[in-house]
Amino acid sequence: MRNTYAQQNKWAGYWFILPSLIIMMLLIAYPLLFGGYISLFNTNLLNKWEFVGFDYYLQAIKDPEFLQKIGLTFKYTGLVVIGNLFVGTFLAIILNMKLPGRLIFRAILILPWLFPDVVVALLWKWLFNPLYGLINHILGGMNLISEPIAWLDKPEFALFGVVMASIWKGYPLVMILVLAGLQSISKDLYEAAEIDGANKWKSFLHITLPGLMPVLVVTIILETVWWFKHFTIVWLLTAGGPVNATSVISIDIYNTAFQDFRFGKAAATAVIVFFICLLISYLYRRFLANDDN
């Protein structure tokens, strides 16, 4: 009886995680494997399945336009992640202070994260509108511009507009994670540093920053992977234009699959993006994580 009871306890944990495991296999593992499978074919997913092997991968690596779009995606991702880290960390430090009404400001500042991407894109499209947009109105009222600027219609400004909208959408996640990290740092460390004569800057460098490093590593990995493959905001604001100024790799995958109906080539590009995200995560963990992690 003891052996039977021990065996039941041994398998009980597996039975509890089985439903979640099945759901993950259906929603995550199967699409990944199927995407890798169709990347080996020239297919329309209906009646055309011409095996091409790794031809699409070789074409992508040798294609200068593909490499240019990967470079643009890195640029877009880097600007958004840096902006999110700066804005989110700055606001988290302020909200961690004992200021009146900070709970209200926390609720207000988290709102962009709660809005759907479609709402965020439409809101910023209205703000950037050259005829009645609020941004041109403010800049014109301050005499900083002499005529309205078509922010999303000019190649030199389009990427800036997309990055601004993405930062506004993404900073609340960084703010929440950094704020949680700040509140986990013991106040005794700051008191001891103050007794030893350390100023605010030295306390930040030697206490706050090391204490936040585990949180920052996870945050940077999540942010980079998320924005590297982001699609919705870019598509709704510019659809990759003008003149491919904002044509990040997710836009290229969408156009290849659903406009050119070259699903095999699109899947191959998506697989390459997947491995790039894995490499980014590994490099972050390798060079930013502490030894204890």
Rank of each mutant, 00 (worst) to 15 (best):
residue 159 L to K: 06
residue 145 I to Q: 10
residue 137 H to S: 14
residue 130 P to G: 10
residue 171 Y to I: 10
residue 172 P to A: 13
residue 128 F to T: 02
residue 161 G to N: 03
residue 171 Y to G: 07
residue 174 V to H: 01
residue 159 L to D: 04
residue 146 S to H: 14
residue 181 G to S: 03
residue 182 L to D: 01
residue 190 Y to A: 03
residue 153 D to M: 11
residue 152 L to E: 05
residue 197 G to C: 10
residue 194 E to H: 12
residue 144 L to Q: 10
residue 145 I to M: 10
residue 165 A to D: 04
residue 161 G to V: 00
residue 169 K to A: 01
residue 194 E to F: 04
residue 127 L to G: 14
residue 188 D to Y: 05
residue 190 Y to S: 07
residue 163 V to G: 01
residue 140 G to W: 02
residue 137 H to W: 12
residue 179 L to C: 00
residue 155 P to S: 07
residue 140 G to H: 00
residue 183 Q to W: 00
residue 141 G to M: 11
residue 166 S to Q: 06
residue 145 I to G: 11
residue 158 A to V: 12
residue 175 M to G: 01
residue 158 A to R: 09
residue 197 G to F: 04
residue 160 F to C: 07
residue 135 I to A: 08
residue 126 W to E: 15
residue 146 S to F: 06
residue 193 A to P: 09
residue 134 L to N: 14
residue 149 I to Y: 09
residue 187 K to T: 04
residue 129 N to C: 13
residue 133 G to Y: 01
residue 167 I to C: 02
residue 129 N to F: 07
residue 177 L to I: 05
residue 163 V to D: 00
residue 158 A to G: 10
residue 185 I to T: 12
residue 196 D to I: 01
residue 162 V to G: 01
residue 138 I to E: 07
residue 180 A to E: 00
residue 156 E to M: 13
residue 186 S to C: 05
residue 142 M to T: 15
residue 157 F to S: 12
residue 150 A to W: 02
residue 145 I to A: 12
residue 140 G to P: 02
residue 164 M to H: 04
residue 136 N to H: 08
